[in-house]
Nucleic acid binder design. Structure first.
Lengths: 205, 205
DNA sequence: CGAAAATCTATACTTTGGTATATAATTATA
DNA sequence: TATAATTATATACCAAAGTATAGATTTTCG
């Protein structure tokens, strides 16, 4: 049973992956929402076998966060994960001590395989990733959902109205409507019920 | 491993109970939505140990359905289940060959116990049930949800709009609104998202 | 048959949801 | 420091959701 720590600031991405790994059975999964708390967990009781860091995450500062993690915990395998980084970033990550670069465009099964590969002591690097340095797409899974949008989604998932959400988040109702609308397009749904059902289905909340 | 057949025309009641029994582990659960299909299943491959019949269900015609089932399958234990029947009905059911009378007001754990009790060869009858013949309450679980309302709920659970539901059921939008409103009060929720989430949570659809 | 429940529709109304556009302050980061 | 993304707000508008009441039809069942 290997211990894996996933650090990503987006619930949607993080918890979906965590749930998936958990279901695989032979992993014990921990999560963090920024580099700071990730390193705190590393210092804690559990010995982590694999640390997966999101490239875009509070505290990362580009590849500085990766470097810091690699130096602080040389015994731990560290992989960089990103949905938007280009080939240059991936290459530079591997030049430091990263054991792998994981694009979020990976399928779920490929993802598991990549992780097993890295845990086995190999390094995982998709050579065909980002054929051109400046190529940047909107990868499969989800478009980036911001913190505030995620908080809004959380309240959508208990069936609250825009007015109630506004009160809870201490913002205006119009602002809630904005977040809600953006959530719809990012999730690919057309109303709040579908959004809530989708989030529940993927075990986000 | 005992075989149990639950016959109830309301998805909400039937499948919630089925799921609960299934989770208990030592039962194999079958379901039917009216007396006719229940008896068909009885004629089928599986030998049913316990048949639970809803008092209000297509084909039952009061206690006639119970009588018919008891006579057709004397080897099978038959219990009557109801959320609205009064003491008279319960008494008459026991006078026929019913092995038990199960009010829907029963708690989940009491329900399991009642079933084990009956399967063990005893008869289950709650003596304090319906202290007065004419007493009729709205019992715990759910108020009766009609066929049409259930169909509406099903479509709510995939996030459809009233207009879309109306088109699918080939009725007017106002009618859908009526069903939706009735669903809310029966489920104890205040909007369609909550209704969908509740139904999903209880694994109805 | 006759009473009760379920189903359907109509009209009318208020509230909420969802879209659009524009503006601005804040924060992150190259 | 300049640029981009996030967050927030305002105004305005239309569509959809939800409530209420009343009437009509059909089904169910004693």
């Amino acid at each position: 049973m290997k211990n894996i720590l996933i650090a990503d600031d987006h619930f949607l991405v993080r918890d979906t992956i965590a749930a998936y790994l958990d279901a695989a059975g032979d992993f014990k999964v921990f999560t963090a929402h920024d580099l700071g708390t990730a390193l705190e967990i590393m210092d804690g009781l559990e010995s982590i076998d694999l640390l997966i860091l999101d490239y875009n995450m509070p505290g990362m500062n580009g590849l500085q966060g990766l470097e810091r993690a690699c130096k602080s915990y040389p015994a731990c395998k560290v992989a960089l994960m990103s949905g938007v980084a280009n080939r240059d970033v991936a290459n530079n990550a591997m030049k430091q001590n990263a054991r792998g670069f994981i694009p979020k465009s990976l399928s779920a099964s490929s993802f598991i395989n990549a992780i097993r590969f890295i845990l086995a002591g190999e390094t995982y690097f998709p050579f065909d990733y980002g054929t051109t340095s400046s190529e940047e797409k909107n990868y499969g899974d989800f478009a980036k959902i911001s913190t505030r949008e995620m908080q809004t989604l959380e309240q959508l998932c208990i069936g609250l109205s825009n007015k109630e959400i506004a009160r809870n988040l201490d913002i205006q109702e119009v602002t809630v409507k904005l977040h809600v609308k953006n959530l719809f397009s990012k999730l690919g749904v057309s109303n709040r019920t579908q959004a809530a059902l989708l989030a529940k289905e993927r075990h986000i909340f």
